[in-house]
Design a protein around this nucleic acid. Structure first.
Length: 900
RNA sequence: GCCCGCUUAGCUCAGUUGGUAGAGCGCUCGCUUCACACGCGAGAGGUUUCGUUGGUUCGAGUCCAACAGCGGGCACCA
């Protein structure tokens, strides 16, 4: 068999995925056991415009690890893929394309434009889905969904109509955030606050019929043209007499009232606030309280309206600001301007400064929908957030303070609002136009031109993809609620909470048991990755450079922690993949006569130490990895796998097995040893599979003796090429976890390490063979070492090993060491030993031990410790101290033997 | 302003019932040892030490309090 020395991931990555997919390995139907427990995940649907970024790769890796693990455990496992139509993002993308062609959506008209977006979706959308295949994600493509699929659109209309009928959705004027660039209303979650250095302008308004002026402070002087009052705190002595009086609004020349309102903080600014109900959320609320007129002075393009006055009409809001300030200065009414840092609101998508406007839109009373999820999290801590801190609290706090959700968007791409108007302007909300006509009693209806917020349909994702509103849908029955939602923290409110609301409302059950929030990946300087900064890491480049499996290990170990990306981590996992490849290469090159599953016959207690030990380590690792995955401690799982495979299996087990495995003559003993190595390798590949699907499959396929019978019972009947992804995840058999074997092996490892250490310290050439004297009879290790004689010889490059009662009898010119437990080893090195140096070497050793000894003795001499600490802890320390004393004694004798 | 997280080896990070400080990378030395130089072997490196200061405890990186630096989230102070 020809196997290259270096693992090239490309081939495996191209080879296996298509077969898995073709043979239906990803679909839950592959599992023939209807009694199996169910495990399900719905993917956070990436935007149709999207391209894979490192955050996706992180989430998908976590989801795939969970999915593959549970599938191997025999669960009926579903990971459902799909995409989001991503309203604004997609529309803007297509508009940009049209612009290049010298046309626009308005030229095309609505119908043609939407057709065009669908076309675009077919052509370019779904790029990310191809990339998801590259990641090895074991999603069930037969259940792929898109938020604008007919079925999902039906779910959207059903959601809307039911909420409208219950009075949870209403249409009406309200203060909304308007993006002048995207030309649409936005919800409060789609805007971002940013602090900004600006100015605070102190403007004076004359009091009618008096010389007196009232000073108000504002960051937006241009809005004064729309002021309809000045408010003061009712308790503020300074202004008490002014309440109810009239002010003359400069420039506009309008008369406005002074009102008293508790909202006003007397401590801030001048204690008098200009009130612009049309252009500020607080002022709007205040306006409602005091019945103030609403004067719109800024339009949807962020330009001043005719209401702002002829001089301002059509002026940009910032130009108007300058002009207002100029005029105030001319009028002598500009008191002062001070530097001031304040929060500005920007469009989360395009970063344009938001214009708060009063506008007629559709709203959802979220507070009512939020009640059920709030109760659930408060009373049962469901869903379970991982990490619990801080996300459970963040989620809870948000649910406690819900505002109405602005649903309508002035876009063309999205779910059209299912509301129709008759000629009199009466509204009919219905699932279909027919239903609306029936309600209206006329077919002269016009549908509302607006579409719904993208998150309205995303919020239904777990139930709509599984079949809701068809409540009898088998998928909904089987796979809902889903097991876990894996996502980034920035959409906990936008998405996670909404799915909980809709799930609870329409099915009475939570959308998912757990919510796993991934960490954020920064660049190596700790900066957030962003397109504009160009500091992002493209996962596809990383795949090309280091392989998908190595990247997945890196991502899995990142898990929920915020971390700075560094390639060297991936490189080390690339090296690990290569290590696995070469370990398998060794096993395969020595596989003649061997078969997976054989070699471990008979009672474990009859096995050689290293065999008992590796089986113990394997079972321990299986237990730890399984436990870690189930607790979402992916870093721990990766750590356990890495060290089991590299340290235990490669560094020790394979090395200890070499003499048995690589004998020139075929024998049953050799076959058995080869089978054992292969069997451990095969089990290790299964453990690694959820993290490294491609490499493990590539190697597993090559192993002699694997086949249909290797599969988990649930998949034995399946008509598929046997694959490691359907093999049973190794069960951790507690009875095979052998503490004694592990302790004994530790002694053997220490012996070998100490001899190697002596060789290096005394510069014995690697090629030179030595003799060893071991004195271990007194502590029961003699038999143990004797049984491993050939391994000791091989790994320490010793040509002979002699057992003695004491190393006092061995040649004086020897380097010596004392092991934990008191066994001694001596390496005669005639000509290499400088007695003074060797005494010094032993002296350093004694010094180290003495330091530790002093610490222990001090603690044992401390009466309160001995009295209050648990007895077993005290005993443990006593034994350690005794062992160290004994070793110090032995070393002392050795030093004496080397005396002048 | 309120809430929260982080601060451990040169770098990136683990450290889950409080009980002898860890990994990877990097560094030093030696090895083309018949799976692997993307490797093997041996080491150095945390000033009795885990941001600082106190506290609880026989015992604290681990629990509590305060402070500092950094980073988040929330917030209708013009």
């Amino acid at each position: 068999m020809e196997i290259p020395k270096t693992y090239d991931p490309k081939q495996a990555e191209e080879l296996h995925y298509a077969r898995w997919e073709r043979e239906g390995c990803f679909a839950p139907e592959i599992n023939a056991d209807a009694q199996s427990p169910v495990y399900s995940i719905v993917i956070p649907p990436p935007n149709v415009t999207g391209s894979l970024h490192v955050g996706h790769a992180l989430q998908h890796t976590i989801m795939d690890v969970l999915t593959r693990y549970h599938r191997m455990k025999g669960f009926r496992t579903l990971w459902l893929p799909g995409m989001d139509h991503a309203g604004i993002s997609t529309q803007v993308m297509v508009e940009r394309q049209l612009k290049k062609e010298g046309t626009s959506r308005h030229d095309l008209g609505r119908e043609k434009f939407v057709e065009r977006v669908w076309l675009w979706k077919e052509q370019y959308g779904g790029q990310i889905l191809k990339q998801i295949r590259r990641e090895g994600a074991s999603v069930d493509w037969s259940r792929e969904r898109f938020t604008m699929d007919e079925h999902l659109s039906r779910a959207v209309r059903e959601f809307f109509v039911r909420c409208y009928d219950e009075g949870l959705i209403y249409r009406g004027p309200g203060m909304i955030s308007w993006c002048p660039k995207d030309q649409t209303a936005l919800s409060d979650l789609e805007v971002e606050k940013e602090s900004q250095a600006g100015k605070l302008y102190y403007l004076q308004y004359p009091v009618k019929g008096s010389e007196r002026r009232v000073t108000v402070a504002t960051t937006r002087p241009e809005t004064m043209l729309g002021d309809t009052a000045v408010a003061v705190n009712p308790a503020d002595e300074r202004y008490r007499d002014l309440v109810g009086q009239t002010l003359l609004l400069p420039i506009a020349g309008r008369e406005i009232a002074v009102v008293a309102d508790d909202f006003v903080d007397p401590e801030f600014g001048t204690g008098a606030v200009k009130v612009t109900p049309a252009h500020d959320p607080n002022d709007y609320a205040m306006g409602k309280r005091h019945n103030l007129p609403v004067v719109m002075v800024i339009d949807q393009n962020a330009r001043m309206t005719v209401e702002a006055g002829a001089e301002f009409d059509g002026l940009d809001r910032y130009a108007a600001r300058e002009l207002v300030v100029e005029k105030f200065e001319e009028l002598g009414l500009l008191e002062k301007v001070v530097d001031y840092e304040f929060a500005i609101t920007k469009c989360g998508r395009c970063r344009t400064v938001i214009e708060p406007l009063v506008s007629t839109q559709w709203f959802l009373k979220q507070a009512e929908l939020g009640r059920a999820p709030l109760e659930l999290i408060r009373e049962k801590h469901e869903p379970r957030f991982v990490p619990e801190v801080p996300y459970e609290k963040v989620y809870t706090n948000w649910l406690e303070n819900l505002y109405d959700w602005t649903l309508s968007r002035q876009l063309w791409w999205g779910h059209r609002i299912p509301a129709w108007y008759d000629e009199a302007g009466r509204v009919y909300v219905a699932r279909t136009e027919e239903e609306a006509r029936a309600k209206a009693g006329t077919d002269k209806l016009t549908q509302d031109p607006d579409v719904l917020d993208t998150w309205f349909s995303s919020g239904l994702w777990p139930i709509s993809t599984l079949g809701w509103p068809d409540e009898t849908s088998p998928d909904l029955k089987t796979f809902y609620p889903t097991s876990v939602l894996v996502t980034a923290r920035d959409i906990i409110f936008l998405w996670v909470s909404r799915m909980m609301m809709t799930g609870l409302k329409f099915t009475g059950r939570k959308a998912f048991d757990d919510v796993f929030i991934t960490g954020t990946i920064f660049d190596k300087h700790g900066q957030r990755m962003s397109k504009t900064k160009g500091n992002g890491v493209d996962p596809l480049d990383v795949f090309d450079k280091y392989g998908v499996d190595a990247t997945r290990l890196t991502l899995a170990s990142i898990g929920s922690t915020d971390t700075r990306w560094n390639d060297s981590q991936v490189e080390s996992y690339r090296n690990f993949a290569n290590k696995i490849w070469n370990a398998a290469r060794f096993c395969l090159l020595n596989s003649e006569g061997a078969q997976v599953g054989k070699g471990f016959e008979g009672e474990p207690k009859m096995w050689a130490l290293h065999d008992r030990w590796i089986v113990s380590r394997l079972n321990r690792t299986a237990r730890d990895v399984g436990r870690a995955i189930e607790e979402y401690q992916f870093h721990e799982a990766v750590y356990a796998l890495y060290h089991f495979f590299w340290d235990d299996f490669c560094d020790w087990y394979i090395e200890l097995s070499k003499s048995d495995v690589s004998g020139a003559e075929a024998s049953t003993a050799r076959d058995a040893a080869r089978s054992r190595v292969l069997t451990v390798l095969e089990q290790a590949l299964r453990l690694l599979h959820p993290f490294m699907p491609f490499l493990t499959e590539e190697l597993w396929q090559k192993l002699p003796g694997v086949g249909a019978e290797s599969l988990h019972p649930a998949y034995r009947e399946a008509d598929v090429t046997p694959t490691v992804m359907l093999a049973a995840f190794p069960l951790a058999d507690a009875s095979l976890i052998d503490e004694q074997a592990e302790a004994e092996m530790q002694s053997l490892i220490e012996l070998i390490s100490r001899v190697r250490n002596i060789r290096t310290e005394l510069s014995v050439k690697p090629s030179e063979e030595v003799r060893l004297f071991i004195s271990a009879a007194g502590n029961g290790l003699g038999q143990l070492f004797n049984a491993s004689l050939s391994q000791i010889k091989r790994l320490t490059r010793a040509r002979e090993v002699a057992f003695t009662d004491s190393t006092a009898d061995v040649p004086r010119a020897s380097a010596r060491a004392v092991l934990a437990g008191g066994a001694e080893v001596a390496v005669p090195l005639e000509g290499l030993i400088d007695f003074a140096q060797e005494r010094a070497r032993i002296g350093r050793e004694v010094e180290k031990l003495e330091k530790e000894s002093q610490k222990l003795e001090a603690q044992l001499a401390y009466p309160q410790f001995v009295e209050r600490a648990p007895a077993e802890k005290v005993e443990e320390l006593r034994q350690r101290a005794a062992d160290i004393r004994q070793r110090i004694g032995a070393l002392g004798q050795m030093r004496e033997a080397l005396g002048e």
